[in-house]
């Protein structure tokens, strides 16, 4: 088997361990400390933000405008699909206009 094959196998095993590991460690404790609980409740916003922020910073006017409009639609109570489609449409439009 090739080097690539073994890189993939090792990467897959380690990736699975990250996905099962957090639960395995946490489930050893009878009670979860309220601070840990509060920290875990912050996980979705904290992690997902790191996937957006650098992209937003690197983005030009078209990208920033698309994200801003997406955020506003969400704040106004729009669901994921309206938000996603409007922001994407604006992005494509502005990229065409701004070159």
């Amino acid at each position: 088997m090739s080097t690539i094959f073994w890189i993939i196998v090792a990467g897959a095993v380690l990736t699975y361990l990250t996905r099962a590991g957090g639960h395995l460690v946490l489930s050893r404790f009878e009670r979860i400390h309220p601070r840990v609980e509060a920290g875990l409740n912050a996980v979705p916003a904290a992690v997902l933000t790191t996937l957006v922020a650098p992209a937003a910073m690197e983005g030009g006017p078209a990208e920033i405008a698309a994200l801003a409009v997406g955020a506003m639609i969400s704040l106004a109570g729009g669901g994921m699909m309206p938000m996603f489609l409007s922001a994407t449409a604006l992005l494509i439009l502005l990229r065409h206009l701004l070159g």
Binding site: P44, A45, L48, T49, L51, V52, A55, A56, G59, E63, A66, L67, G70, A71, S74, L75, M80, M83, F84, A87, T88, L91
Partner: peptide, 11 residues
């Protein structure tokens, strides 16, 4: 990034 922003906003 747009999709992830939507997820951030949903929380």
């Amino acid at each position: 990034p747009i999709y992830f922003l939507g997820l951030v906003m949903s929380f």
